Simulated scan of single mutants.
Amino acid sequence: MQDLSIPEAASHAILEAGRRMDRFGWVPATAGNISVRLGPDRVAITRSGRHKGFLDAAGVMQVDLAARPLDSNARPSAETGLHCGIYRRFPEAGAALHGHSVAATVLSRLAGDTLTLAGYELLKAFPGLPTHDATVAVPVLDNDQDIPRLQAEVERRWADMAVIPPGYLIRGHGVYVWAADMPAALARLEAFEFMLDCELALRRVRP
């Protein structure tokens, strides 16, 4: 019989990520969600309705890659399907983070289909960019409460991109990023949020 327990290291990584994101104000109220890949067909993810800054082990559950709960009748995050879409598309992805920062929410409302980041030293946090002298077009998706439909649109956008950045924005909502493991995902999120803060500051001084 398959062991469906969540490894302590995975649960700890999610809890610590929630506290870190909360300290930066990226997961207000019960917003945001956090996940870790447990294997080829299992994901540990935050349960719905839990404040990410005060998570305990009971706030983490398992789903399969179709976003179906495996180990309880608990309700996973509403956007579990977007996490699973990341893991299905990118076998190297080991952790995914979703936050609702002010900068991500505001800039995604002002942007078109993409938000361009260029010239930032922290672009080095994105794979294949060894220098600040680079430009990344971050996809911006219209918000949709129909998660399968939204994920289908994400996949359509990915199919049109020669190089897929490890992150995207949902308009008026927030940001998704992923990486090989939780430390890398957190570093990537922090770099992304720093650049978004800079972009928002530039719009204030350059109306």
Rank of each mutant, 00 (worst) to 15 (best):
L150P: 00
S11C: 10
D181S: 12
V177N: 05
M61T: 10
L189I: 00
D146E: 15
R37P: 07
D146F: 10
P40V: 15
A57I: 02
G39C: 09
V63L: 08
D160K: 13
R23Y: 01
A104N: 04
V63F: 05
P207T: 03
F126L: 15
V43A: 10
G112K: 13
A93K: 09
P69Y: 04
P91E: 06
R42D: 02
G49S: 13
E121Q: 15
P148L: 08
R149D: 06
H132R: 13
L117T: 15
F90M: 02
A29M: 13
H132M: 14
E79M: 08
Y87G: 01
G59W: 02
S101K: 08
G85N: 00
D113E: 10
Y87C: 04
H173S: 06
D41E: 08
F192Y: 00
M182K: 02
S35C: 08
L186R: 02
G112T: 14
G53Q: 07
D3F: 03
G119S: 06
G49K: 12
D64T: 09
L4K: 07
A111N: 11
D56Y: 09
D64S: 13
P127D: 12
F24E: 15
R203T: 03
G39Q: 05
Y87S: 06
D144S: 06
M1V: 13
V205M: 06
L202N: 10
L97N: 12
A44V: 00
V36N: 03
R75L: 11
V63P: 02
A95Q: 01
E199N: 11
A201S: 13
Y176R: 01
P183F: 06
A13W: 00
Q151E: 14
R157K: 10
V60P: 03
A137M: 09
I34N: 04
A9H: 11
P76C: 11
L123F: 05
L189N: 08
L186C: 02
L15M: 13
L117F: 12
